[in-house]
């Protein structure tokens, strides 16, 4: 009997590893980054856009704005496209087609982000440069690539949300003389709303946290963009571009950038899990 209790203790200890890791991550990112924020001043850090860390200027406003814009751009492409796939598969296809296409589309999640970035540079960037102007490496390129990368997140969570709507709802609507599409639009989509919102929020989290693909296609220029064709540097790119050689205050500033990113992501995660729980 004593052995059983011991085993349970060990398992509990193992089970705490994930929350423990999360705590460690939080602690270390904050420990490294907070001194810089205290040094530069939170307001100056967040609300100015002069970034010259070796000369003592630590403003990340341009990157915050760029991150938000790239993410919003990704949503403009990714949400309609992902929802369209989810509705087609969950509502308008026979079970066999659904079981075949859902895992196929989820393969998009397996393609490494560097491959997305690479194909973006080879195909998308020249297309933008030649037909729309600008350097090609741009806010637009970043948004398009991220929009594609968040598709699997949006598709699979939305399909689950749509499939969770009881068939009774559909039958009732059809019995009243509605077409399939009217049923989807007026009955199924509203019923699945919270799940779809969760999908969108988690998609946002993926987009704002993505690094390698964005570095490769977004151009990394340090200014607030005035057009979608301007090159931009996101919070994630800033960290990845400079971490390898940064020291002292400069390195702290990169961790402080990480804090901002981490806080944004955690707010998105909290929101998503609060919505899921309420359901």
């Amino acid at each position: 009997m004593k052995r059983e209790v011991f085993i349970e203790r060990v398992l509990l200890f193992l089970a705490l590893s994930s929350i423990g890791s999360l705590l460690l991550i939080t602690i270390f990112i904050f420990l490294e980054g907070v001194p810089l924020i205290a040094h530069a001043g939170l307001k100056k850090f967040l609300l100015t856009s002069h970034w010259a860390p070796t000369k003592g200027h630590f403003g990340i406003l341009a990157m915050i704005i760029s991150s938000i814009l790239v993410t919003l751009g990704a949503m403009v492409l990714g949400v309609p496209l992902g929802l369209a796939c989810a509705i087609s598969l969950a509502e308008f296809s026979p079970e066999r087609v659904k079981t075949l296409l859902k895992p196929t589309l989820e393969l998009l999640a397996g393609i490494p982000s560097v491959v997305y970035g690479f194909l973006g540079v080879i195909w998308l960037v020249p297309l933008i440069r030649d037909y729309l102007g600008g350097p090609g490496l741009s806010l637009l390129a970043g948004s398009v690539i991220l929009g594609i990368m968040i598709l699997p997140t949006i598709i699979s969570i939305s399909i689950d949300a749509l499939s969770a709507v009881p068939d009774l709802y559909r039958d009732g609507s059809i019995a009243l003389g509605a077409t399939n599409w009217q049923t989807v639009r007026r009955v199924v989509l509203p019923a699945a709303r919270s799940g779809i919102i969760t999908a969108v929020i988690l998609g946002m989290g993926r987009a704002i946290g993505e690094t390698m693909a964005v570095i490769m296609v977004a151009g990394n220029a340090l200014k607030i963009p005035t057009s979608v064709l301007d090159p931009v540097r996101t919070l994630t790119s800033n960290i990845a571009l400079e971490l390898a050689y940064a020291t002292g205050r400069h390195r702290e500033a990169l961790f402080a950038t990480g804090i901002v990113l981490f806080v944004i992501i955690m707010i998105l995660n909290f929101t998503a899990s609060a919505i899921t729980r309420r359901r």
Partner: peptide, 10 residues
């Protein structure tokens, strides 16, 4: 949900 760049920093 923690992005890989944050894990990299950590």
């Amino acid at each position: 949900g923690v992005p890989s760049i944050i894990l990299g920093l950590f």
